[in-house]
Structure formats: C-alpha cells, structure tokens
Design a protein around this nucleic acid. Structure first.
Length: 484
RNA sequence: UGGGGGUUCGUCUAAUGGCAGGACAGCAGACUCUGGAUCUGUUUGUGGAGGUUCGAAUCCUUCACCCCCAGCCA
C-alpha cells in the first residue's frame, strides 16, 4: 500500500485524502441489512462447491439455492451471527437475490459477504468475520463518498449491470456511474502481475525494480522521468479500443521517444568511453594538460559549461575505429582525419596490434591549429568522436539494457519465458568516464554523447560508479550498417 | 453455443453527414563540432457486402474477425 502511494506520488499525483473501504464496513453492513429487509438478499448455507456447481454455465441456467426463500427474520438472524463469527469459513454466504437464469453470470445471485476468520484484516484486525466481495463494495463506496464517475478497465463492463443493480436496490439519492476504458499494454514486455511475479521469483530479472521491468519502480531506476511517462500516457490517449488483452498494444518506441524528448532537453552532456581503445597523440607534448570549456547542454545554454582535461594519451570508442572502413563509415581509419569533440582534429598514422591481430593502440598526430574543434583553413571532417583523457578519466561500470523479450507479444505465446531476450542486460566493466562525473549521485541523469541517456544506479557505492542506460540515442550508422 | 465489448495508416489516436488529419515507427533528403538534436518531403488506413443520401469512417441492414466473462479474487 505504501509502495503504491510512493509510486503514485513520484508520478506527480497528489491527493487530499486517502480512504479505506474497511473504514466504512459498518455502513456497508447496514446497507446489506437494508437489502435483506427488502427481500433482495439471503443467507445461503451451500458449500463453495455447491454454489459453484449450481451456478450453471453459459449455455445452461443455474439452480436456485434451497435457502433462497428464507424469511427476512431468519436471514437477519443468520447474517448477524455470521458477522459475530459463529460459523466457520465457507459455511455460509450472503447472496443477492437476482436471477439464477441470467445470461450474465455476475447476476446469478452474486455473493455479497463471505466468512473469513483468518488471517486478520490488515486494518481492522479481528473486528470482522465477514468481508464484502468486490462487486458489493465498489459501487457502495463510490456512492458513500460522492464519486460521480467511477473509472475502471473494460473487463468490468459486464459487472456494470450488477454495479447498477445494487445501487438501484438501495435506492440511494446519489448514484455514481461506472465508465470503462481500455487497458494500456506495451509490446515486447508483459504487464500482468502474475507474469511479472514469475519473472521476479524465477530470477529472470533482479527484483521488482529491475530496470528492465515495466513497473514504475523499474522505469524509475532505469532513468525514465515521471514527466516522460505522463507525456507518454497523454500521447497514447484514452479509448475503448480492444485489440489485445482487454486493451490496446502500444509501441515501446513511443515510450522511448517520450523519454528522449524529455531527457534531450534536460540532461547534462558528458563524455564516456564504454569500450576503450588507447590513442597516443605522438606530436602532443608529454606531460602537458589543457582544459577545454565544454557546453553542458546545447539545448539549454543556461546549463553552462565545464572544464574537460585533454592530454597526450586518450581513449576513444573501439567502434569509432576501423582498420578497413566499410562504405559510408565516416569515423577514424588509417590515414583519415576526424575531430575529437571540443578538442582537436587528429589523424591516424599507425596501428599497434597484439599477438592475435587485434588492434590495441593507435598512433595519431593532432593539428594544433584546430584547437577548440575548428580548422582555420576551413577544411572539414566527416566525423566527431567522443574521448576521455587517460590520465584523468575515472573507471565505471555500465549496464546497457535492451528489450526484455524478443517477441512483440510474449503474453500471446504459450511460454513467454522462452521469448525472453538473453541479451536484455549487457554489463560493461572497465568503462572510462570524464572526471566531472566524480561526484555523481544515484539517480542523476546524463547524456553520454553519441551513446545514449544514462543514470547513476542505486548500486553505486563509495566512489564506485555504475550507470544504467535509460535509452540509447538514435543511431543512423547502426541502421546503415545493418542494411549493408 | 449465453452475456458483455471492440474493429480508422505497421502502432496509438482525431474527424459524429461535408477535403480521412496528427504522433510514433519506416523511407528519402537538408543541416550539424553528438551519424544526437532540428528541419523538409514521403509511403501506408476507414474489416467485407449491400442500402439511405447531392455527399457516409460517421446513419440502416447483414456478414466477418478480435477481446473479456462460468472465484466465497479484484
């Protein structure tokens, strides 16, 4: 309960007061007595099995209970004794007297109260031995509290007739109205509590707040903002369309677009190298350190600037160098010149390989005239790379998250566990981030330039930095490369 | 073989008798010190068949398909 309120609050929902239906059990009980007195409810002595068996099915009417026509006095007496705990669990129920042949199963003398002695209710303790069914509590609570529009999802549509029957039978002056809307499903994930619980209990994810979980706590830990989620919901809209799982199936990419929209405007830019490749700038003086003033957020100049150190040995992303560049690859390659973001143009002259032939180090030269990132002679480069200074960078762990399932609709498949994406979590150790990130706190959000949006994970402790990828930046090159 | 709902681009959603529009995704291009952002262009849709009407996504008839319901769960 506290967790729900905390999540709601995080989302930006405010409330004046919180009401518990258990605080109104007395009034509800009085109303039940009113129905008994009107001959609209009766105590049934049938066992759960008998009630189930005599309900009939879609094609056959149910059978009326032998206890259906007891006198009002007897019903009142029995109900009172049920309440007082004189009977064991399951021995009796209070049922509304409606129509055992009704086409809508909800109307076949629905149970209003059943007997439950254990475990005690979390708010009322042992005061009550009978508890109302959902249908018998919902509309009555709405009426008690002056609710005008009671919103719910469309699987309750065939409960509305019962909702209204109770209200009409009680003849209250205020009658609330139930209105149903479609549920919102996301593709490439599961939303049902049962399935989410299985993911947690079987260890497919690391708890309810695993950043891959479509729970509010999961999304929050992943770095999604409340603003982005609210905007997403607003952009999806509200309808009664039913395409899947009693609702609509929304593209995950729309959620991601909303997250990017928000983060693009508000997050500070940083440089981080996830898979480092050492680069030695041969003509840069050893021991020299320059500090460049770098914009914190080009979308928001008020965010100011910061200092980023540069030196002779730096690291760039392994993906940003190809010994044999494919067509349309603009980044670094032997003999090619690119820009180091906010710093200098560099040209690659030679490559150092290990015994396996893997590239482990690059030797480059820089052009001092391009300081700050522009060439006075007007020559252009086709790529700009992010980098960190070897001497100044600080180590970090980065967790890249991808969609949890490979199947757009895992709930529709027989075994949704089989549709899990084995690569939904990629843990990268040995990442290097710029020194200004030293004091980043859990929950802080940044854009790692050219990579994506990241936030500091709650697992970060005592100077050990761990970043979660919230959502990657759009990647044109990945698309080009994929197409071949 | 019952009851309750639903069907507009790939997805979500507008248009309630008067030009089928927007967003995301896709594609193409421009621009760019993030192959980011931004901008421009563009493909794709009223489930089917009849009917009413000058005119139908919208009204009528009919067919098809999809979702939910047989807890003393909510």
């Amino acid at each position: 309960m506290d967790a729900i309120m905390e999540d709601a609050h995080w989302l930006g929902i405010e409330w004046e007061k919180v009401l518990y239906s258990s605080d109104f059990f007395d009034l509800l009980y009085e109303w039940a007595i009113r129905l008994v007195k009107k001959g609209k409810a009766y105590v049934d002595d049938q066992s759960p099995e008998e009630v189930s068996r005599t309900r009939g099915d879609w094609n056959h009417p149910g059978i009326e209970s032998p206890w259906r026509n007891r006198s009002v006095e007897e019903n009142l007496d029995l109900l009172e004794r049920m309440k007082n705990g004189e009977f064991p669990d399951g021995s009796r129920t209070l049922r509304a007297k409606i129509d055992m042949a009704h086409g809508n199963m909800n109307m076949r003398d629905p149970i209003m109260y059943r007997i439950i002695h254990e475990p005690p209710h979390h708010r009322t303790g042992k005061k009550w031995c009978i508890y109302p069914m959902y249908d018998w509590a919902q509309g009555q609570n709405d009426a008690m509290h002056g609710v005008t529009h009671s919103l719910c999802s469309i699987e309750y549509e065939d409960h509305r007739i019962l909702y209204e029957w109770y209200l009409d039978a009680l003849e209250l002056e205020h009658k609330p109205r139930q209105i149903e809307f479609a549920r919102l499903n996301l593709n490439y994930t599961v939303m049902s509590k049962r399935k989410l619980r299985r993911l947690v209990e079987e260890g497919h994810v690391n708890g309810w707040n695993d950043p891959r979980m479509p729970t509010l706590r999961g999304m929050r830990r992943r770095g999604y903002t409340a603003e982005a989620i609210r905007n997403f919901v607003a952009r999806v809209g509200v309808s009664k369309t039913i395409n899947a799982r009693a609702g609509v199936m929304v593209d995950f990419s729309l959620l991601e677009a909303c997250v990017r929209d928000d983060l693009n405007l508000h997050s500070l830019r940083k440089m981080a190298v996830l898979k480092p490749l050492k680069v030695v700038i041969d003509n840069y003086p050893a021991g020299m350190v320059e500090e460049f003033d770098v914009l914190n957020n080009p979308e928001d100049l008020d965010a100011g600037t910061r200092k980023v150190p540069f030196s002779r040995v730096i690291y760039i992303e392994q993906d940003d160098f190809r010994e044999e560049p494919p067509p349309k690859y603009f980044r670094l390659a032997p003999g090619r010149e690119v820009r180091l973001r906010n710093a200098y143009f560099i040209q690659c002259n030679s490559v150092v390989k290990d015994e396996n032939g893997a590239v482990v180090e690059l030797h480059c030269t820089y052009d001092p005239a391009t300081r700050g990132g522009d060439s006075p002679d007007g020559r252009k480069v086709k790529a700009t790379l992010h980098w960190v200074s070897a001497e100044h960078a600080i180590p970090a762990e980065v967790r890249n998250y991808d969609r949890l399932f490979n199947n757009p609709d895992p709930e529709a498949s027989g075994d949704f566990i089989a549709d899990l994406n084995p690569n939904s979590l990629e843990v990268l150790e040995g990442c290097l981030v710029e020194p200004s990130l030293k004091d980043a706190q859990p929950g802080d959000r940044f854009q790692f330039e050219r990579l994506g949006y990241y936030c500091v994970d709650i697992d970060s402790t005592g100077g050990r930095l761990i970043f979660n990828r919230t959502v990657p930046l759009k990647d044109e090159w990945a698309k080009v490369e994929k197409k071949g």
